[in-house]
Design a protein around this nucleic acid. Structure first.
Ligand code: MN
Ligand code: MN
Ligand code: ZN
Ligand code: ZN
Lengths: 142, 142
DNA sequence: TTATTTTCTAGAATCGTTCTAAGCTATTGA
DNA sequence: TCAATAGCTTAGAACGATTCTAGAAAATAA
């Protein structure tokens, strides 16, 4: 049963991506993929690992996040300078960004349509369309 | 005539923003606003100033860009971590981002419609909607 | 096993940006 | 006209996120 092999599907995912299923990568994958959709910075994930008593260097967290992103297990989202969010939801979708709390939230794909795209510049093709709806708290708090 | 007072409208714009029309700010405004729509980083603008023999520190370029942005003369756009673009087009519009050359280009506002926005999270209101269409060169070059 | 390859890591380095504190400049109003 | 004042500029240090380095450790192959 799956409960007897809690890592088996993650191990397969890593192997399919050409990544050895090391202790560090398994621990990060568990933190990332077993809690629903998440939008995390490298430093935040490193903090979660520490809190879970997983000793891992920050450099390894960055390495793993970029490797997972290259493998299509994560997606990188940029909404402000100097900080990247890694998104466990790799389906097509867009985001709300709360400017006051610096939090990212998904907008389900079917709830936002971008009308016909204009033709991209000659010689180029579209790799992704990112829509970010920036919001702020009403009044000055929350 | 306007040609006799090439700086007069820029001076007015700065004064209206509560900014003294200093040598540095006038030179930057001239570089920014007299060449059509531009999307520049602070370092790029600093380089243009140097090339035009305007001696100005990088800190002053950053200060001026943020002041101009606060005054509504510029808009800040983020498309990748660790770098901000300042956009001289403050009309509502969206962007193509060429991932290979790191160049930003305007999409005229009327050429891209974002269908009805979903309701923002409770207690928040929308400050801006940013659409970035990421493109890459066909084949491996430019 | 042992050899080979990949991965991990501490710490240094880098990069864009912001801060600091001291000197300059534009503006004001006597 | 010219201090006095408030605002501005600057070099360089500091910063925070990220990347690099190079040697040690772990995973896999032989
Ligand atoms: Mn990255
Ligand atoms: Mn800024
Ligand atoms: Zn998301
Ligand atoms: Zn633009």
């Amino acid at each position: 049963m799956a409960s007897d092999r809690p890592y088996s599907s993650i191990i397969e995912r890593l192997k399919n991506a050409g990544l050895r299923p090391t202790r560090q990568r398994l621990a990060l994958a568990k933190l990332l993929f077993e809690k629903g959709n998440r939008h995390l910075t490298a430093e935040h994930l490193h903090g979660e690992a520490s809190a879970a008593n997983v000793r891992i260097s920050l450099a390894t967290v960055y390495n793993a996040l970029h490797q997972f992103t290259a493998a299509g297990l994560l997606r990188e989202v940029v909404v402000e300078p100097g900080r990247s969010y890694f998104d466990t939801n790799v389906e097509e979708h867009h985001h709300f960004y709360r400017e006051d709390t610096c939090g990212l939230e998904d907008i389900p794909g079917e709830h936002l349509q971008v009308g016909d795209l204009p033709a991209p510049p000659a010689g180029t093709s579209v790799t992704r369309v990112d829509v970010v709806i920036r919001v702020k708290s009403d009044q000055g708090s929350t």
